[in-house]
Each structure stands twice: as C-alpha cells, then as structure tokens.
Amino acid sequence: MQSAADPLSRVFHALADPTRRAMIERLSRGPLRVGDLAEPFAVSRPAISQHLRVLEEAGLITRTPQAQWRLCTLTPEPLEAATDWVEEHRRIWSGRFDALEDVLRTAQATQDGDPS
C-alpha cells in the first residue's frame, strides 16, 4: 500500500478504516500501551502494527518508549485540519444548495403565475 503524498490525504486514508477510527476513539480518552490499545481488536499483532504505522504516518498518534512498552498518544492537530477542510467544503456546498433553492423557488413562482 502506497502512502499518500499530502498530509490531509494521509489523515483521510487513516480515518477510512473502522479499526483505526476505533483506536483513535480509545486514545481520545488518554494514552495507552500498544498491548492495551490492541486488546479489544480481533486482528493479528502484525495487523495492529500496520494500523499503528498508518496512524503514525498520518500524524494522528505518537508512539514513545516507556520502560519495555510503547505508549501511544493521540495527536489531535491532524484531525483539526481534516475538520477544517470538511467544514470549508460544507459551507461551499450549503451556499450552492441555497442558491439552487432560490432559483427553483423563483422558477416555481414564475410557473405558478404563468397562465400557459
């Protein structure tokens, strides 16, 4: 699997997988050791490592050594950038839909007033 070039694409790629979203959800409550983070998921250790690698490459988590374990911590800034992108495009599309609604309303009013 090839990694996306830009940071926002890496974030959306990471968020596309339900296991990774669940990992982010768990980490939103606080840092966890890799083993504790992996515990509820019915996937292999190599699969967990791959998920963590994708999250780390997207900048969504950091893994730091803590004694003999690795501690995973959520990094919220990339999520904020993704939220900003979504909100910006939501505003654009809302504006377009509002304009379309105005056109349709005007067309309907014209049609209702047209005797033909």
Rank of each mutant, 00 (worst) to 15 (best):
M1N: 06
M1Q: 12
Q2R: 13
Q2F: 02
S3I: 13
S3G: 05
A4T: 00
A4S: 03
A4P: 03
A4L: 10
A5L: 11
D6I: 10
S9A: 14
R10P: 03
R10D: 09
V11T: 07
F12M: 09
F12G: 01
F12E: 07
A14R: 12
A14H: 09
L15D: 06
L15T: 10
L15Q: 00
A16G: 11
A16S: 15
D17E: 06
T19C: 13
R20L: 09
R21Y: 10
R21S: 00
A22C: 04
A22S: 12
M23D: 06
M23H: 10
R26C: 04
R26I: 02
R26H: 04
R26K: 11
R26W: 02
S28D: 05
S28G: 00
S28K: 07
R29K: 03
R29I: 01
L32T: 01
L32K: 07
L32S: 05
L32G: 07
R33S: 06
R33A: 00
R33N: 04
V34R: 10
V34Y: 02
V34I: 10
G35Y: 00
A38N: 04
A38Y: 03
A38C: 02
P40F: 00
P40S: 10
F41R: 14
F41C: 06
V43G: 13
V43H: 03
V43D: 08
R45H: 08
R45V: 08
P46V: 13
P46N: 13
P46Q: 08
I48H: 03
I48L: 04
I48N: 07
S49E: 06
Q50P: 05
H51M: 01
L52S: 12
L52N: 04
L52Q: 09
R53Q: 07
R53D: 05
V54W: 04
V54H: 00
L55K: 01
E57A: 04
A58W: 08
A58E: 02
A58I: 12
G59T: 06
G59H: 12
L60D: 10
T62P: 05
R63N: 08
R63W: 03
T64N: 14
P65L: 10
P65D: 04
Q66L: 15
Q66P: 01
A67F: 11
W69C: 14
W69E: 12
W69F: 15
R70Q: 12
C72T: 02
C72A: 13
L74Q: 01
T75Y: 08
T75W: 00
E77V: 06
P78L: 04
E80N: 08
A81N: 06
A81V: 07
A81P: 03
T83L: 00
T83A: 00
W85L: 11
V86S: 07
E88R: 15
E88Q: 15
E88V: 01
H89G: 08
H89P: 10
R90K: 15
R91F: 04
R91A: 14
I92Y: 02
I92R: 11
W93G: 05
S94Q: 14
G95K: 00
R96A: 14
R96F: 11
F97M: 13
A99H: 04
D102V: 09
D102Y: 06
V103G: 04
L104R: 14
Q108E: 09
Q108M: 12
A109L: 08
T110Q: 15
T110V: 11
D114P: 03
S116G: 14
S116K: 11
